Simulated assay, not measured.
Amino acid sequence: MTEQVPIDSADLDPERLPAHVGIIMDGNGRWAHERGEPRHVGHTAGEEALFDTVEGALEAGLGYLTVWAFSTDNWKRPREEVRFLMNFNRDLLQRRAGELDERRVRVRFVGRRGRPVPRRLVQMMEDTEQRTAHHRRLTLQVAFNYGGRTELVDATRQLAAEVAAGRLRPDDIDEEAIAARLYEPDAPDVDLLLRTSGEQRLSNFQLWEAAYAELLFTDVLWPDFRRQDLFEAIAAFQGRDRRFGRVRSR
């Protein structure tokens, strides 16, 4: 049996890259459990996966990459794990912000920034955004304290406030009006949505932005994910026939 040759970034069609890739980074806890380690060990191991994936996105020439770091539902996890994740993300920014800046990566955080997110962490997020705001080689969006329904609720509240203030008529509310009030309205829609660990659901991630995304699920647990897996996902995307409701061409 012939061994399959790994896909390299050079094998990808640069004219057919997804404009925006979203990743649900799943499987840290399972990865740790399989090794007899506590869950936080899996989260720590996931850092290497994230930054190798970012390097792969740069190598492939992607424009936007959104990764889900912390869900609005994750506050329901054990208090010790939540505390670890808050401190871990703070320390991660301390370790990696300079590295992303050097690679000309624009970093943006999408999600709610008020309590219960620690103010110190919010300040570091905002500092990183300001530090990297002028870069355009790759935009890395980190979904933190994020939920797709929460994003739509916040957009709807903004619309309601504008209607109440007389700045907007109800009849003016359409898809463009809603899209303009999302967390990052200038970001392109998600073309490719990838989830690791074998789970096959969206779990409230990028519900509006991924309306026409190609979905890809891999059994690879997130700490084991590397740029090679990203290249394979992009190659699979490039092999699909995207119709957006149109009849298949003959």
Rank of each mutant, 00 (worst) to 15 (best):
residue 74 N to K: 08
residue 189 D to H: 13
residue 246 R to G: 14
residue 81 E to A: 06
residue 209 E to Y: 10
residue 188 P to R: 13
residue 227 R to N: 00
residue 184 E to M: 13
residue 81 E to R: 10
residue 127 D to S: 10
residue 238 Q to W: 14
residue 103 R to F: 11
residue 242 R to M: 02
residue 167 R to L: 03
residue 21 V to D: 01
residue 167 R to C: 00
residue 113 R to E: 03
residue 17 L to E: 00
residue 17 L to D: 00
residue 244 F to E: 04
residue 90 R to N: 04
residue 220 V to N: 07
residue 206 Q to R: 02
residue 201 R to D: 05
residue 13 D to E: 09
residue 145 N to Y: 00
residue 55 E to K: 14
residue 71 S to P: 07
residue 181 R to V: 04
residue 169 R to E: 15
residue 154 D to P: 10
residue 98 G to V: 00
residue 246 R to W: 12
residue 93 L to C: 05
residue 242 R to Q: 02
residue 96 R to F: 08
residue 89 N to M: 15
residue 226 R to H: 03
residue 227 R to S: 07
residue 168 L to Q: 15
residue 46 G to A: 12
residue 234 I to K: 05
residue 123 Q to W: 09
residue 173 I to S: 08
residue 201 R to K: 09
residue 214 E to L: 14
residue 112 R to S: 11
residue 112 R to Y: 09
residue 23 I to G: 06
residue 183 Y to H: 14
residue 145 N to K: 09
residue 239 G to C: 01
residue 143 A to N: 11
residue 140 L to Y: 08
residue 196 T to Y: 00
residue 10 A to V: 10
residue 178 I to L: 08
residue 7 I to E: 12
residue 4 Q to W: 12
residue 79 R to V: 04
residue 49 A to Q: 03
residue 81 E to G: 10
residue 194 L to E: 03
residue 72 T to F: 14
residue 238 Q to E: 07
residue 68 W to D: 01
residue 159 L to Y: 08
residue 175 E to A: 04
residue 188 P to E: 05
residue 130 Q to G: 09
residue 147 G to L: 02
